[in-house]
């Protein structure tokens, strides 16, 4: 293992920012290469944890001689934000994952992104551990945006339950995944967890999925269990259950629960009077893939996302 600084940046007063990398495998290996990027945001604690646990795992495996590819792990990109409970770059509040491909002569965070991206270019595979961009928590899923260079086949080797495969949003053109793909790295994101918290079972699932991927893609010489056959979902196949009222949310289910049509999923109560404002009923049978995770909820917020392929197809035909 080689531990090294990928980026260092001096600060006016605090200790310099260091983006550290952990590199495994021999320099002159014939095997493929992968870079794994952890917390880009200061609230992506679960991502930080999975990445650092993976460093620990690889360190023990390195002695066994099973690493046949080149593996770079970057647990934390935005340590400055992590160390002060901020989400974004602490001075100008820019999101580092909105700065790619970066610009070496530009603003501070563009420079950081540019230097980081210089290191990330040329890897065969790119795994981005992503937190959510909202107040939700979710089952681990793969987010693969269509850039024209994405590789849907390889992400199936993770064996995760769901692959969200969809056209990219305009804002995603400034994100790492999209730009990494343009540079011909097979890049994808694994989105999971709840921002600011660590979930052990979710962490284990993601860890196992990465090990499986590295094994199947011949970077780790290790036998693995087969994963799940991934369902490819686009946003149209997810049923959204929204809060008709704001208040305190009490959820009765967890992510991954298989729910029936008509089942009570939770309730919203008036934050002041305590009266029940809404009983949240599942409109379909399916699996809860994602739920709102903050106890205070806003009107029209999405409380649950339910993956239910048949039902959604049925609804689509009914609409027509």
């Amino acid at each position: 293992m080689k531990r090294f600084d990928i980026v260092t940046l001096e600060s006016p007063n605090r200790a310099p920012l260091r983006i550290e990398g952990f590199l495994f495998g021999s320099e002159n290996t014939q095997g493929p290469s992968v870079a794994i990027v952890g917390a880009m945001s200061g609230d992506h604690i679960n991502q930080l944890y999975v990445a650092s646990q993976f460093v620990e795992y690889l360190r023990t495996k390195e002695e066994e001689g099973i690493i046949i590819g080149r593996i770079l792990v970057i647990p934390a990109v935005n340590a400055y934000a992590l160390n002060m409970g901020e989400k974004n770059w602490p001075l100008d509040k820019t999101d580092l994952n909105m700065m790619f491909p970066g610009y070496a002569q530009g603003e501070t965070t563009q420079r950081i992104a540019s230097r980081l991206f210089d290191t990330l270019k040329g890897y065969d595979y790119g795994i981005i551990l992503e937190g959510r961009r909202d107040q939700g928590m979710c089952l681990p899923y793969v987010k693969l945006v269509q850039s024209g260079y994405e590789d849907l086949e390889c992400v199936k080797d993770l064996g995760l339950g769901f692959i969200h495969y969809r056209p990219h949003d305009p804002v995603e053109t400034a994100m790492l995944q999209y730009n990494w793909q343009l540079w011909e790295t097979k890049a994808f994101s694994i989105v999971f967890g709840k921002n600011g918290a660590i979930d052990q079972s979710v962490s284990n699932e993601v860890h196992t999925a990465i090990v499986r991927f590295l094994s199947k893609r011949e970077m780790l010489n290790i036998p693995v269990f087969e994963g799940r056959k991934s369902n490819i979902v686009d946003p149209n196949r997810i049923t959204l259950v929204k809060a008709s009222r704001a208040g305190i949310l009490i959820s009765k289910v967890t992510c991954g629960t298989h729910v029936q049509k008509g089942e009570v999923l939770g309730k919203i109560i008036d934050a002041l009077s305590g009266e029940r404002l809404e009983k949240i009923i599942s409109p379909c049978e399916g699996i809860v893939t994602c739920q709102y995770s903050h106890p205070l909820i806003f009107q029209n917020s999405i409380v649950f996302r339910i993956a239910s392929v048949e039902l959604c197809c049925h609804l689509e035909t009914k609409k027509k």
Binding site: E10, S11, L91, G106, E107, T108, T109, Q110, R111
Partner: peptide
């Protein structure tokens, strides 16, 4: 007034 490298 506080600037980092790159600040505009």
């Amino acid at each position: 007034p506080i600037v980092y490298e790159g600040s505009l």
